[in-house]
Design a protein around this nucleic acid. Sequence first.
DNA 1: GCTGGCACTCTCCACTTCTGAGTGCCAGCA
DNA 2: TGCTGGCACTCAGAAGTGGAGAGTGCCAGC
Lengths: 338, 338
Amino acid sequence: MLSERRLEVLRAIVQDYVGTEEPVGSKALTERHNLKVSPATVRNDMAVLEDEGFIAQPHTSAGRIPTDKGYRLFVDKLAGVKPLSSPERRAIQNFLDGAVDLDDVVGRTVRLLAQLTRQVAVVQYPSLTRSTVRHVELLALAPARLMLVLITDTGRVEQRVIDCPSPIGETVLADLRARLNSRVVSQRFTEVPSLVQDLPEAFDTDDRGTISTVLATLLETLAEETEERLMIGGTANLTRFGHDFPLTIRPVLEALEEQVVLLKLLGEAGDSDMTVRIGHENAHEGLSSTSVVSVGYGSGDEAVAKLGVVGPTRMDYPGTMGAVRAVARYVGQILAES
Amino acid sequence: MLSERRLEVLRAIVQDYVGTEEPVGSKALTERHNLKVSPATVRNDMAVLEDEGFIAQPHTSAGRIPTDKGYRLFVDKLAGVKPLSSPERRAIQNFLDGAVDLDDVVGRTVRLLAQLTRQVAVVQYPSLTRSTVRHVELLALAPARLMLVLITDTGRVEQRVIDCPSPIGETVLADLRARLNSRVVSQRFTEVPSLVQDLPEAFDTDDRGTISTVLATLLETLAEETEERLMIGGTANLTRFGHDFPLTIRPVLEALEEQVVLLKLLGEAGDSDMTVRIGHENAHEGLSSTSVVSVGYGSGDEAVAKLGVVGPTRMDYPGTMGAVRAVARYVGQILAES
DNA sequence: GCTGGCACTCTCCACTTCTGAGTGCCAGCA
DNA sequence: TGCTGGCACTCAGAAGTGGAGAGTGCCAGC
């Protein structure tokens, strides 16, 4: 086990490296932090830390930089979550309070998070699977053509056009609309299939074909739309990445464009706890030199979606985690109010 | 006026520079293109072209590179639009045909355009101002709370929650819904205000307050949503920009994140003709070393929105213009079909 | 008006040297 | 046993040097 002081040395290395972006040496360390020991001692400690794989030298005669494993230890044991300053909190609230609809909330959140952390922000739209139905609407576009509109408690709207096998009467449609809503409103999306299963039985045989088609489309929409959308922002912050620029940034930009990759990334993270994935812990190759800080957010106690930040492994973890957590909370509040 | 041969020299310079990304000298020019004159002659021509401001030297003893003015001349007089190969055309069609809804169409278009041109693609969602109403729906969420859903002929859906001054009966609501739809369906959004103006008069005085609120919200939605959305993609292609990297790419990324900037950019371009804005012709500072190729697209003969490409001024104009034009055509077809 | 020749300029590249930060190790001290 | 100062060593990066080569402008001649 590492002694108290060695952990302190690691913490100091991480902090300095995050600040300066340059390998940190023993002398500089003792000067900037009052470790109360000489550079020589620190050197010995560093040798141990290097043996254990927490830090590494870019080349023989240079200072040390933390490895992914080093950051891991730092995040798990040495760093807290830095709360935001109260002006920052107020700014968040003011900024988010102005939102007019769901798109706007998500858009503002992305920008806010990107500004606050000076990194790339990713916000997932509230997912259908976990939300509840606010309303289902059926509109007759033509005698045998319907539009299905689905409204969620988070304000999201999905629509589908349905071509029916046979025309459907206005009364039947009204009846179907009423029955459908009475069954599914306020229910979770996952519950819907079992709730509507026996619905065709309540109608004339003539109409059952159409009813089934409608229900099938509804279920299909639910299934398809479980595939979540997200919004990203702050990609310009990638330019602060490092000196070896084009090589580093390219795969990251590519990964960010693949929504699938990002969704998988968020999906793998913890459901409501804050999760930090460091460097190679991210399965995707393009993101192997980035860290992802993510957390779930939601209107109630349960998370309906996730948001987070993608940045260099060399990031200010306490600050980033603080910002991510705070933003998630406020977004949750906003969603609960609307 | 520039002689035929000098224009030929300019064309050769642009082509070579676009290909090699390096300043092109007189000797290389005569070797690669059969100009039928000696390097010395070309040098004299180059001196003239430089005096006129079409080309410039990065430093004394280097080749020449085209200026914005040079590219302008090239695009206007010297370059045609390069049609796509037929495999490319087929690929476009296949790729776009698979789209399931409007979001999907736009998303696929962005990716397609980015891949085809290897640059940053920008696609504007079909704008509300130019589209027509397919349906307006009013749903009672609570006795004095309605949801307004607006569906456009391009498949776009907008919704708003309305808090009414007084509860509204189911019959009145149905009446309103019917009257509203009979007036506005298939009408252009710009016509809607005058068409619904006298609608409250058809109802009891008790309900007029609510009706007015609903109409006000409808008009407000139209006004607000005239603010158009867009989707961008292919930002990873920015990494192919140049060598002086971070400095160049940063402002571009920032500009791309500001939807307002992009919308203004597209707005300034010609309505349906293809427009090429080169370098400093773009008002926005961050984009002063990029060119924007854009064109309108639409389901009928009229453009409902624009799409385009943002790339370095040093781009393959004929190829890019060909791709942009072809994609716009196919997207128009897809929209017309749905 | 085009061409070949020539002197000149300047970037780029490879090579060398120098410097300084940082290291590992060791002997001595508390 | 653990900390410290001292010392020799290493190596990346900065700075300087010297061609090489690409490109230019200009001029005299065809």
